[in-house]
Simulated scan of single mutants.
Amino acid sequence: MLGQLKLIEEKEIKKDSIKERAEQYGIGSLFDTEALSLITGIKEDILIRFNSLRELKEELPALNVTRLQKLKLEAFFNMAIRFSKENRQIIKKITAPEEVSNLLMDEMKFLQKEEFRILILDTKNQITKVETISIGTLNASIVHPRDVFKSALLNSANAIILTHNHPSGDPTPSNEDINITNRLIDAGNLIGIKVLDHIIIGDNRYISFKEKNLI
């Protein structure tokens, strides 16, 4: 079931309404389903049927709620994406794959098609830009080295980090993922732009090629 944000005593859960507990203890005291119910007006017993926010987003078109409630849910997911985009505009020095995951996970785990992006780094390994290279079908993206390094060169990249999502939620790299990564590493070596890592984002999980010694 959808996870909880913070547990409080069971007797308090039964005694107080969602609104009362939010006012008294803060939004952090609510379960995910309770917080969404407060935002959208959708009854919690409808929301609690879903195992994750990803599943809720995927099933949104068929959800048996009012059009206004659907619009509120769509607005919630859209604002989450906007917030993530706003956060990543901040120049940030990358020192570990987990930091890339933390930067992109909240947005990319909800995408229903594969998106291939590159993080453009300066000489201090600070992110200067995140560029979307391709948007694919439900389970595949089309990536050409020409497009990757055209963007890298135009943005004066010293190095890049590759990243894409798996809509299935399983970040395990496919043979195609491994092959395109090797092609991009070779191309980068030829023009002097190093590929530092390739990070695949799943459902609250990620796999780093560097951590797995795949590059």
Rank of each mutant, 00 (worst) to 15 (best):
F116K: 07
E114F: 05
T123V: 12
Q112P: 06
I135H: 06
K124R: 11
L121W: 07
T128E: 12
S101M: 10
M105V: 04
E115K: 11
E107F: 02
E115G: 05
K124P: 00
K124E: 15
R117C: 07
E114R: 09
E114N: 08
D122Y: 05
I118Q: 01
Q112S: 15
I135S: 10
I127V: 11
E131M: 06
E98L: 12
L111W: 15
Q126M: 13
V100P: 00
I120C: 03
K124V: 05
M105G: 02
V130K: 09
E99I: 06
E115H: 14
L104D: 03
Q112E: 15
T132R: 12
K129N: 14
S101W: 14
T128I: 15
E98G: 11
N102S: 12
T132F: 07
I127W: 02
I120N: 01
S101L: 09
S101G: 09
T128H: 09
I133F: 02
L121V: 10
I133Q: 00
V100G: 00
F110I: 09
R117A: 04
F110Q: 01
I127T: 01
I133G: 00
I133A: 01
N125A: 10
K124W: 09
K109F: 10
V130R: 05
L111G: 03
E115D: 08
E98Q: 15
S101K: 13
N102F: 10
V100A: 07
L104S: 05
V130W: 06
K109L: 09
E98R: 14
K124H: 12
L121Q: 06
I127M: 02
E99R: 11
E98A: 12
I133D: 00
L121P: 01
F110D: 01
L103S: 04
R117V: 07
I127L: 05
M108H: 08
V100M: 03
N125D: 15
V100D: 00
Q126D: 07
T123G: 04
L104H: 06
E98Y: 11
E131T: 06
I118T: 01
E131G: 02
I133E: 00
E107M: 09
N102E: 15
R117L: 11
S134I: 01
K129D: 14
